[in-house]
Design a protein around this nucleic acid. Structure first.
Lengths: 109, 109
DNA sequence: CGCATCCTTAACCTAATGGTTCTGAAACGC
DNA sequence: GCGTTTCAGAACCATTAGGTTAAGGATGCG
């Protein structure tokens, strides 16, 4: 798992880590806040945060004794770009106009 | 890794498996053909194919003694959909018109 | 300074991952 | 039907992943 893309996909393969990322969309959070929803110890969550950090998906700062995690979604773009190369193979409709309308609708929400 | 999405991301976390998927965009292939580019034994490739199959990313048929693998990109759509929820957090520009133009350009290629 | 708070690190365990070699099954060609 | 080809499965091994508990480091407060 030497490359960045593998690290990102590996990080996303764990539901706990995906939930952490989802939580961080609402803003920075302490380790205790991030750990609260999960039935696991706080060091376990710390390990997940380390994985996310090494994949570049979060950054971390300090505020007093607390460590704050921040979402860094940049690497997700690389994952999206990789997936984009397969769009033609999962798409039901190959109509370009239809695609445009779908994307307009996506853009609307 | 009980859920489908985790299985898909886990499957994509390995460069060998991503390369296999890339190869299969050019059409079905035998195990020997898929194994050829890699410096690993045939059973190792068989294991990777099993992971891809269990993630729903390939299907397999027989032709004589050969086993053919076929790309099944459907599950990639779920991965793409998950990533889509983070678009707003990686985009530099949040201008809706800019988004539209980017998407039109994507649609063009 | 002394202590509480918040979190990380260390040490450990189990199970899964990714590889190997060796054996064996399934389908065809003769 | 017998051997060949093509692949999967079994058995094994080393490493990584995901969890635990216990201990310790950094920061702020009285």
């Amino acid at each position: 798992m030497t490359d960045q893309l593998s690290a990102v996909f590996a990080a996303l393969a764990d539901p706990t880590r995906r939930a952490i990322l989802a939580r961080l969309r609402d803003g920075e959070a302490t380790v205790a806040e991030l750990a609260e929803p999960f039935a696991m110890s706080q060091p376990a969550v710390s390990k997940h945060l380390k994985v996310l950090e090494q994949a570049g998906l979060i950054s971390r700062t300090r505020r007093a004794t607390a460590r704050l995690s921040h979402l860094e979604a940049g690497p997700l773009r690389a994952a999206r770009d990789w997936l984009a190369d397969y769009r033609a193979y999962w798409r039901e409709s190959h109509d370009r106009l239809d695609d445009l309308l779908t994307q307009l609708k996506e853009n609307e929400r």
